Simulated assay, not measured.
Amino acid sequence: MPSVDLNLLVALDALLAERSVTAAARRLGLSPSAMSRTLARLRSATGDQLLVQAGRTLVPTPYAEELGGRVPALAREAQAVLRPVAGRLDLATLDRTFTLRAGEGFVDLLSGPLAAAVIQAAPYVRLRFAPKPDKDAQALRDGSIDLEIGVVGPSAPEVRTQLLFRDRFIGICRAGHPLLAGGAVTAARYAACCHVVASRRGESFGPVDEALARLGLTRNVVLVVPAYTNALQVAYNSDLVALAPRLSLGNALTSNRAADAGLQGFELPVPTPEIAISAQWHPRLDDDPAHRWLRQTVTAVCRSAHPSS
């Protein structure tokens, strides 16, 4: 296909509408001489005179008359295709399903506020939370996941990341647990308890164990479950002690509603690293206006729920 200058299409639309070189030039912000040169290029490209002099006006040729019904729509379509995508988003009519992958803490506590924010701005948008068996980036690469929310793990180097909030672990046990009734929760008393650990991979050793090991202490982990919600249920129904992210899970379940929940949170007696909760997406979605809006909405919901994190 020979090189085509789509600017000629826009110029032809103006010339056919105005039937005047001067008026068409004014419409497009060009000089009359520039528009005359453009008309010459159009005549060369089409092999037709298009507009010919008739007294003081220009009249269309039969071919130009034939084009008159097609060119305006073609010019608008060409401009729409080549216009920056940021100007195309209409949230009121956006009809799209976004698939997110997040841990159970986010789903339990923040998916409701997120859905409310989405419904208010974009009533035809739907959110789907997929299971999170691992942190494999392939789902982001192949498009089966639009947005990953959680702790950044080994990932594809091209994946984009944005911090949402920072969290930290707290201990959780049933209300009235002997650990909380015997004075300060020391590292020795904490380690001496029986523990339940949440791990999708079935691992029982983590940052708290590293901190205890530096003190010569070891936790007695008697149960490993797949999810934090499982660990909290176990802690509620036994004397096992659990861990949970404070903001993501533990705070909502143990602070103001401790009596109702039957669970109580406490500060760990050893320091553990902060947990960075981030949003991750594939770079092909960087400039997609709908996805950018989704990322901004997720960020706003997270920072509203955790303003000081």
Rank of each mutant, 00 (worst) to 15 (best):
L8E: 06
P157Y: 04
V185I: 11
T299L: 13
G105F: 02
T97P: 02
L180I: 00
Y228P: 05
A231Y: 00
L240A: 11
A227Q: 13
R295H: 04
A252R: 11
A64C: 04
I275R: 09
F165H: 15
L100M: 03
R219W: 06
A86M: 10
A122Q: 06
L42P: 01
A305N: 10
D288H: 11
C193H: 01
R88V: 10
S111L: 14
T57K: 15
P2M: 11
S111W: 09
A252W: 06
S20D: 12
R126P: 10
D209W: 00
R200P: 14
V221H: 00
R246E: 12
T161M: 08
C193P: 00
L232N: 02
V151K: 12
G202L: 02
G47R: 02
E65W: 04
V221D: 01
P226Q: 07
L140P: 01
S308Y: 15
G183Q: 11
P2C: 08
A45G: 01
Q120Y: 11
Q138F: 08
D142F: 08
P283V: 08
V270L: 03
Q296R: 14
S248V: 09
L212S: 06
A231S: 01
A102I: 01
L223C: 10
L82D: 08
G105D: 00
V196Y: 11
G55N: 06
D13M: 06
R141V: 14
G47N: 03
V152R: 13
E267H: 13
A198S: 10
G216H: 05
D5P: 05
P273R: 08
D48P: 03
A213K: 04
L243Q: 04
T254A: 10
C193Y: 00
R83G: 13
P154I: 09
V234R: 00
Y63P: 10
R219A: 06
C193A: 08
R41V: 01
F169Y: 15
V107A: 12
L249V: 04
R168Y: 13
P289S: 07
G103M: 02
A242I: 05
A64V: 01
I277N: 01
R19S: 01
P157R: 11
